[in-house]
Simulated assay, not measured.
Amino acid sequence: MSDSQDQTAFDSNDLQFDDFELEDFDADVPAAATTATATRNLDFFKNIPVTVTLEVASKEIALGDLMTAGEGSIIELDKLNGEPLDVKVNGSLMGHAEVVVVNDKYGLRLIDVVESALTSMGQ
Rank of each mutant, 00 (worst) to 15 (best):
V29C: 09
P30N: 11
P30F: 11
A31V: 14
A31P: 05
A31Y: 06
A32E: 13
A32L: 08
A32P: 04
A33K: 14
T35M: 14
T35S: 14
T35A: 15
T37F: 14
T37I: 07
A38S: 12
A38H: 08
A38Q: 13
R40L: 14
R40D: 07
N41G: 10
N41C: 09
D43R: 14
D43Y: 09
D43G: 13
D43H: 11
F44R: 11
F45S: 11
F45G: 06
V50H: 13
E55R: 01
V56P: 00
A57R: 02
A57K: 02
S58I: 01
S58G: 10
K59I: 05
K59Q: 12
A62I: 12
L63I: 14
L63V: 14
G64D: 13
D65N: 15
T68A: 15
G70V: 11
E71I: 15
S73K: 01
S73F: 00
I74C: 07
E76Q: 15
E76K: 11
E76S: 15
E76H: 13
L77M: 15
D78Q: 06
K79R: 12
L80P: 02
G82T: 08
E83D: 14
L85F: 02
D86L: 04
V87M: 00
K88E: 05
K88H: 04
S92F: 05
L93W: 02
L93H: 04
M94W: 04
H96E: 11
H96N: 13
A97M: 07
A97W: 01
E98T: 11
E98R: 07
V99Q: 01
V100S: 10
N103S: 14
N103I: 06
D104C: 00
D104V: 04
G107H: 04
G107D: 05
G107R: 08
R109F: 00
L110W: 00
I111D: 02
I111K: 08
I111L: 08
I111V: 09
D112L: 01
D112F: 01
V113A: 09
S116E: 04
